[in-house]
Structure formats: structure tokens, C-alpha cells
Design a binder for these strands. Structure first.
Lengths: 117, 117
DNA sequence: TAGAGTGTGTACTATATAGTATACACTTCA
DNA sequence: TGAAGTGTATACTATATAGTACACACTCTA
């Protein structure tokens, strides 16, 4: 039971219902890996791919890259870089937000985006 | 020129001025690594240690663990876990805050901590 | 002046990561 | 009925990570 593998398989199979180009082989060819490897990834036979491969896969399947990275146990490297530039501020903020309900976070995100911060 | 190594060396040497227990050998013994390894880390001869080792080192040198992890190109795994639980919300928020000046972020952190979010 | 403590050079290693390459059995369809 | 396409099993690999183990030369100091 691999959360990432299951997600990929379901997303791909769903697309495959209407478009033949979403076979294991064709997706693998487009994202630049061997079909046997993608097959193993989907069945959780091996760990999730690298960030770069996940991003190509997300693009091909029209899925959210941050969500797919999260399912793979990773966090986008551009976010990591942002955090690393101001570690204390971001560490404090993220720990503060850890137990905050979704709706409050959503409000915060909107306020930051719209407000005159 | 290793940012992490230089930081460790300077912090340790500073402490060593007044306390003999901050030699390479004694610090290495306390944090559970070989002295030759700590020496190489300080001179940037090898990459930075693992998160667990960095945390023990930060503790021993009384330095901020998040800052030391950042210098090592890492982000604390507890923050990663928090982000991975709500990838879209945190990804949006962090990207929104990327170019925000320090003082604004500081204000935001305080407001989140004190306010009725 | 011997012994304890100092930093460091050299050689090696176990485990994880992120895959490749090839071959196989099965299905579809022209 | 044979060619093309499908998913998958098996075996292998290159590179990075995160160190260990040991020996060496130097410096204090009792």
C-alpha cells in the first residue's frame, strides 16, 4: 500500500478511460523513464521517484505537483529554499500554524495575498 | 568554503576560548561521531552531517537548530511533516511570503501567535 | 621527558536513491 | 494469424549519503 503509487495508478487509469495515450508505456515514454519502472512505482514495489520525475508526471497527468510531492514524502525544493533563507521566521510561523484549522489557514493565505502586508 | 563548516568551527572555537571541553575531540565524543569526521565537517572536506547529528551538535554548541540545518541546506523534518499534511495551503502561503520583508513577516508571526486565529 | 591531549590525513564501508535493460506472457485488431 | 501494444518480472548499476577506523605529527605540562 503506497499512497503515492495508488494515487498515480488511479489518476492514470481514470485518464485512460477516455484517452489511450495514458497507458503505462506511453506515460513512461513521455516523462522519460522505463515502463517497468513506472509500473513498479505505481504498485509501490519501489520508493517514489525523484522530485524532477514527479514534476513531469504531475504535469502529464494534470495533477497538483505539491500534492504529489507530499504523497511521495517530499516538499518542493523551491519551498525549501525559501525557508532556508529565513529559517527562524519560517520555522516559528510553520510551527505556529501546525494545529490551526484549515479554514483559518485559508483565511490567512487570502489575507496575506490581498492585504497590504 | 563551507558555510556550515565555518559556522561550526567559529562557534566551537569561540566556546573553546573559555572552556577546554570544546575541543574537536571532546565535542565529537559528546555528539557521538569520530573526531576526524567532525574535523572534516568543519573544514568542508565532506558534506554536512545528517539531521540527527546536526541537532546534537546544535544542542552541544547552544546554537539554533533551524539555523544550523539551514546552513547545511536542510529543513527540519518536523516542519516538512507539517507542510506535507496540507501541501496546497502551505505551498501557497510560503510562496506568497517569499518576497515579503523581514519586518512584515515578523509582524505576521506575532499576529498569528497572539491573535485569535 | 614521558604522557595526555590536540587536530588531521588516508583508506574504507554500509545503506539508500533512483533508476536502466531485457525479456516474458497476454490481449487486441486488421 | 501475425504484428503491435499492454503490464510486469528479473537482474543489474551508478551515485550519493553519512559516516568509521586507525595512524600520524604536534603541543603542552607535571
Amino acid at each position: 500500500m503506497s499512497a503515492f503509487g495508488d494515487f498515480v495508478r488511479e489518476a492514470r487509469e481514470a485518464l485512460r478511460q477516455t484517452e489511450a495515450r495514458f497507458s503505462v508505456r506511453q506515460v513512461a515514454a513521455r516523462i522519460g523513464v522505463q515502463p517497468s519502472y513506472l509500473s513498479k512505482v505505481e504498485r509501490g514495489d519501489v520508493g517514489p521517484p525523484s522530485e524532477a520525475t514527479i514534476l513531469r508526471l504531475a504535469e502529464d497527468l494534470s495533477e497538483d505537483p505539491d500534492v504529489m510531492l507530499a504523497l511521495a514524502g517530499k516538499v518542493s525544493s523551491d519551498l525549501l529554499e525559501t525557508i532556508r533563507k529565513r529559517p527562524r521566521l519560517f520555522a516559528d510561523l510553520i510551527r505556529e500554524l501546525r494545529d490551526m484549522p484549515d479554514r483559518a489557514m485559508l483565511r490567512l493565505v487570502r489575507e496575506v495575498r490581498d492585504g497590504d502586508w
